[in-house]
Design a protein around this nucleic acid. Sequence first.
DNA 1: TCCGGGGCTAAGCGTGCGCTCAGGTGGGGG
DNA 2: CCCCCACCTGAGCGCACGCTTAGCCCCGGA
Lengths: 210, 210
Amino acid sequence: MTDASFGGVTPDAARRLLLGAVDAFAERGFHATTTRDIAGRAGMSPAALYIHYRTKEELLFHISRVGHEQSVAVLAEAVEQAPDCAARLAAAVRAFVRWHAEHHTTARVVQYELAALEPEHYELIVALRRRSEEILRGVLEDGVASGRFAVDDIRGTTLALMSLCVDVARWFRPEGRRTPDEVGALYADLALRMAGDCGAAPAGVTSSSG
Amino acid sequence: MTDASFGGVTPDAARRLLLGAVDAFAERGFHATTTRDIAGRAGMSPAALYIHYRTKEELLFHISRVGHEQSVAVLAEAVEQAPDCAARLAAAVRAFVRWHAEHHTTARVVQYELAALEPEHYELIVALRRRSEEILRGVLEDGVASGRFAVDDIRGTTLALMSLCVDVARWFRPEGRRTPDEVGALYADLALRMAGDCGAAPAGVTSSSG
DNA sequence: TCCGGGGCTAAGCGTGCGCTCAGGTGGGGG
DNA sequence: CCCCCACCTGAGCGCACGCTTAGCCCCGGA
């Protein structure tokens, strides 16, 4: 059990099933995961799953919704607290990346198993994901409007930023050479560069060449 | 049939099966695709698949190998032809991104279905993928050594560049607002910024704000 | 004209899937 | 004390999967 994002889920059995599903989906993908595997990870019989969830897809939907809501909240909070637009961009990317690294198991499911959702669930999740994109784009727009950033193609650069942040979930390993915060700091610096930040030099980046 | 990368595959039935598999894997993912679906797209009965390929996984392996070999070749060629390290980075990213956009169907399979490969096939493909990473890292290293680039964490920045380029395959749609070449140009500019390029301003970027 | 064999299909094998259901069990309210 | 019912299990249903097999068709060579 790798993730503590679902602490509020009750009853206990439902939470264990959710955590088992997160691990299984992250390891093998939704379609390659069996309900028997999920139930086994939760220490229960296959039939128990259907007391708490109607289908396997509903498990994926719960995970996706909670995960997306959390990542959007983290992003929104980071943006709110920063004083100017360069700090906002750095804080946003740093927090968003840190979330994807710390919760890389959940994040992998949330970001890469969307296609397995049923159409109406998919629409709901995509709307949440669009919120993340809009927050990032808003920061870039503010920066360009104030003359602090130099970005030609705001939509394209936003998309690139999203790719950058989200993909962390795919390669991040907790036993790797960087902590979530270090990756966040590096990526915040890269984001400022991509935005053509022409303000103060981004000193204080935790450098670790090699 | 969306991709022309497998023109050399013979006999005709084997190629049609490969193209059908690419489309099906890209749409639904490997595990959600049935051999009946692949055979159907090739206009054949399910049994015909097994005359040309031993298993469904072998189809995925063929697609992955040919696709990776092509993208590495495209990257290597771009790097070879450019005169200085900034031009090399721009050309590399531009060509790599363009390949992922033009062949987005194949690229999606190649980049996001690796986990379904059998261990020994997986190792072989990962080795190819590592070649791409090494080429990009080499360009960054040269640039830093020559003082043209300012990068603290070369490995981390390389990883970020890879994320950026590869993720194009996930969101690119041919009916979208940008051509593969336009995306390539935008991303080449972003890459130069990420590398802290302190040379001539990257004029001539196909700008399209909004 | 006949034959051999590559390329293909119809039919189907065994398996493991998502999910169901009848029944057991144990802790809290009357 | 007993009953109730939320929770869980063992057994298994129906199905679709990956893959196999037996045999048909058709084309090139003698």
